[in-house]
Write a protein that binds this DNA or RNA. Sequence first.
DNA 1: CCTACCGATCGGTAGG
DNA 2: CCTACCGATCGGTAGG
Lengths: 235, 235
Amino acid sequence: MKPPVSSIKSEPVAALDPVIRRPRGRPRKTEDERDDGNRRQQLLTAAARLFRDKGFDATSTRDIAAAVGMHSGSPFYHFKSKDALLYAVMEEGMHAAIARQARALQGARPDAVMAPKAAPIADAPRVQIRRLIRAHFDTLLGPGNDFVPVMLYEHRSLGAGQRASLAKLQVAYESAWTPVLEALHASGQLGAPVKLSRLLMLGALNWSVQWFDRKKGSSLDELTEAAMALFLRES
Amino acid sequence: MKPPVSSIKSEPVAALDPVIRRPRGRPRKTEDERDDGNRRQQLLTAAARLFRDKGFDATSTRDIAAAVGMHSGSPFYHFKSKDALLYAVMEEGMHAAIARQARALQGARPDAVMAPKAAPIADAPRVQIRRLIRAHFDTLLGPGNDFVPVMLYEHRSLGAGQRASLAKLQVAYESAWTPVLEALHASGQLGAPVKLSRLLMLGALNWSVQWFDRKKGSSLDELTEAAMALFLRES
DNA sequence: CCTACCGATCGGTAGG
DNA sequence: CCTACCGATCGGTAGG
């Protein structure tokens, strides 16, 4: 069946010829599709949304492929398994959350420096906890922020090793709360022990994923103020 | 292998003989297995545990059958579908939770009646909220109480109609909190608006399913006191 | 990244 | 409640 012309392939010398080289497999980028990390990122975003809406097990890799206009087998060109895709979603979510949290805490600093009278040093922990809470709500409920909710509600679908890796990121994230809560506890503004306070407070916030509706109801600012009023005492 | 005596079975007349009648299919109850609703209940309990541990989608009906010593098709003799089994688990969980909550609130009353001095009327809401919190922790974390956690974390796997039915039970359950929270808010013991307070407080408790370890750490009593100290103000 | 495909698993059923 | 089985779906792969 093979024409004699193709017999060149069998000659090692011709295969080494640099003129013949041709990036086989991926056609060079057309106008609407760049073959850099963009397709991978599209897969991540679509997967995060589907995992959040339907759950990991109820989402097929075909669903994800269809959401970005791929065929069934193509996601496996970018991720070696469905589990790897889930892990990538969670990891990106945690990195973004940690970055957002750091930005929020840094933003709390200049205020106290530039207006020492308006924001006396004793209020610093209160300012910080408010920013921590607000940043957390943003991470959970902000538009397009599907990654961390997937992390929170689907980590059971992960293998032990990957779960351990993510646990480190979670510890890093939550460790920012401890000194702030300790200061509040010492000054009598926080009534419960620090560790249990952190677990209960983060739980209250994490659960908002279940009932918060961006279309109606409270804003994230109102939510933040309600949490402040619920958790903290006057002095 | 069969002795000639058993050849009676092949005679139609003998088959109609009332003396020969024999409940085919299910052998009459031996000592250790009653064929009443017991097997059904065993399926429910096993399913609740598996759904809680591995998730609904990750649990096969074969897993559930094996957990109670049945073969793969037999659960469908008791439940018409896997979804029906999930719904039954959640419904039983909610009924038990509502009953436990009612018992807890009734238990709070006699104390105030029998020792009016020791528990003045102004403390009633505080006593009631403590009992509500404690009952909720029991429902979520008590030994063998897998049903409500399944309800909380797997309700996405339910159809719209069944989800609506359960929502009614959830409203009934949570409605007991409202008057207590209103009394606490009116007396300045609760800092945040009642509705958001209820959502945040129940979220904090519900999230304990994710981190509580019965083997080590706090007791349910300690958890309850921590929640009281976190949520409520002095006067 | 597509085409074509495979092995495994799963919910569910017929008939007894 | 068991036996034997089916159709559908799914994660994943070979080869291009």
